[in-house]
Design a protein around this nucleic acid. Structure first.
Lengths: 124, 124
DNA sequence: GATTGACTTGGACTGAGTCCAATGTAGGAT
DNA sequence: ATCCTACATTGGACTCAGTCCAAGTCAATC
């Protein structure tokens, strides 16, 4: 493990962060001025492969990186400001997909994104 | 309504299509050779605003446009080849999000994406 | 101290999408 | 039928996120 990778891992440390790659890069630069974007992308890619970090694509702009990979959860996104909260719905959506709706697929994963308006945006 | 818009609407006609904007453009060009990409994007954007077509962002590449907007449904995506099927799970995931997990948001919508491997990719 | 191989760098490149000024056109007014 | 005008279309430049690659760096090994 190199100093660059350590810095990227440190940036992602913390529970409720959902940073874009560029935001990760910006924060990494603050700690290690000459780290490059390419290295940040490489390291994020490795962390994702290792299962340490999740990619979330809640908006259609940049992917976000979610360090809370070990507790399964879904996301609630504000349609106005883009704020993201981790949420834990009851029930298991995988169980809600009957065999007749699986078309022979081996279904392994489900991703749920709730959309709405956050109190800040609603209040203003 | 102009001929360009008619052509875009025609391309999207059909139940189980999930085309990217470029694919829509390619098919539109086959019917109306000089239609531009910008017009295809404009028209798709309007159809989305009108609620006639849904944007789906199942992979991290191009958005796809789903003309099946009037029957609520979710998507099942093959992790290998990207094939997309419309699915209709039982249950209502909105009801599965308790108030305590809404953080004051006004939640209006939920999007569920199942991932797995399709029979083609599994068999090969 | 030289070799090695993995890691990093920066810049060029790609793909998807947006923006904008110039041009074209549908369809109502005359 | 012709004219007008507001709106639609065009194409090209631009942005943004991300990938690729050749060259450079570094640490551990021989």
């Amino acid at each position: 493990m190199t100093s660059q990778r350590r810095v990227v891992a440190e940036v992602l440390d913390g529970e409720h962060v959902h940073l874009t790659a560029d935001e990760v890069h910006a924060r990494a630069v603050a700690k290690l001025p000459e780290i490059s974007r390419a290295t940040v992308y490489n390291t994020l890619g490795e962390l994702v492969s290792l299962g340490e970090v999740l990619e979330v694509a809640t908006d259609k702009r940049a992917k976000r990186y979610d360090p809370n990979a070990h507790q399964p959860h879904h996301h609630l996104v504000c349609a106005r400001c883009g704020a993201i909260r981790d949420v834990h719905p009851t029930g298991n959506p995988l169980a809600d997909l009957p065999d007749s709706e699986r078309f022979g697929f081996t279904v392994s994963d489900v991703e749920v994104t709730y959309r709405g308006v956050c109190p800040n945006c609603a209040g203003g």
